[in-house]
């Protein structure tokens, strides 16, 4: 069966939700560029010895965090609410009566949200580089690897949040409950390099903290973030099958 029309229509409908469009697509780049421009210290050059480029602005260390935030925002606030709302409104049940299996709708939305995430991440990188003069990553492949693993781990977590919530509001509540601590570990509140050691150690074992630290290492060309990569692989390996298994279709 051709799921093309379903994907096209769902994309159109997705783009009609102002909250999804703002938080998933615009929020990361807006936060990065906005704060970069507003807080003077963010644009002054780094003075820490040993970093590759002393002339890079301070805000550079914030970019990996913003990428992690983009992943967390879509996977924990946008997607679970959409899935739980499908369940709440009976959309999944309605589809079950047609030749189109409801899992194709979920599949279509995973695709849409991944594409939206790519757009949001690209916007943050391009926005940071052009407006704030952030230099490009030293090891882009490491950043990309960590970004992909962050996506698989966090989307699996989002799927698990959406698996059982029978209302959009419930999914939103649980999502937020995970989202805000995640932001802490991602370095939004306390930048990773100045995080107290115990917090950095804790963050390393959370999917979002590992993502943030891994991408930071890749951006600055530090040693390969092996632990962080393994942590994200492990989270994905545990959460994804669990999310699929527990997902309630009606």
């Amino acid at each position: 069966m051709n799921a093309g029309p379903l994907l096209t229509t769902e994309t159109k409908v997705w783009l009609r939700d102002p909250a999804a469009v703002f938080f998933a697509l615009v929020f990361p780049v807006l936060l990065l560029v906005g704060l970069g421009l507003v807080i003077p210290d963010f644009r002054s050059p780094m003075e820490e010895p040993g970093l590759p480029w002393d002339s890079a602005p301070n805000v550079t260390i914030w970019l990996p965090t913003i990428l992690a935030l983009a992943v967390a925002t879509i996977s924990l606030t946008t997607m679970p609410v959409q899935f739980a709302t499908f369940r709440e409104k009976g959309v999944l049940r309605r589809l079950a009566t047609t030749p189109m299996p409801p899992r194709n709708l979920i599949g279509a939305h995973l695709v849409i949200n991944v594409v939206a995430l790519l757009v949001a991440a690209a916007a943050a990188v391009v926005g940071g580089m052009t407006v704030l003069d952030i230099p490009f990553a030293v090891d882009p492949l490491v950043v990309l690897l960590c970004f992909v693993l962050a996506t698989t781990a966090m989307f699996s977590l989002g799927l698990l949040v959406a698996a059982r919530a029978d209302r959009g509001s419930a999914a939103s509540g649980i999502g937020m409950l995970i989202y805000f601590p995640s932001l802490l570990f991602s370095g939004v509140w306390v930048p990773i390099p100045v995080m107290p050691d115990w917090m950095a150690q804790m963050a390393k074992y959370t999917p979002i903290g590992a993502a943030s630290q891994g991408m930071l290492a890749g951006w600055f060309g530090d040693d390969f973030p092996l632990t962080q990569v393994l942590v994200m692989v492990a989270w994905t390996a545990v959460l994804f099958p669990l999310g699929i298994k527990l997902f309630r279709w009606t």
Binding site: P5, V13, V91, M100
Partner: peptide
């Protein structure tokens, strides 16, 4: 089905077209 079962933001025409594509 007994209850409304569509996304609030899908239009009448879109819903009919996309459901038609299932068959």
């Amino acid at each position: 089905l007994q209850e409304a079962a569509l996304h609030d933001r899908i239009t009448v025409g879109e819903a009919l077209d996309v459901f038609a594509s299932f068959y």
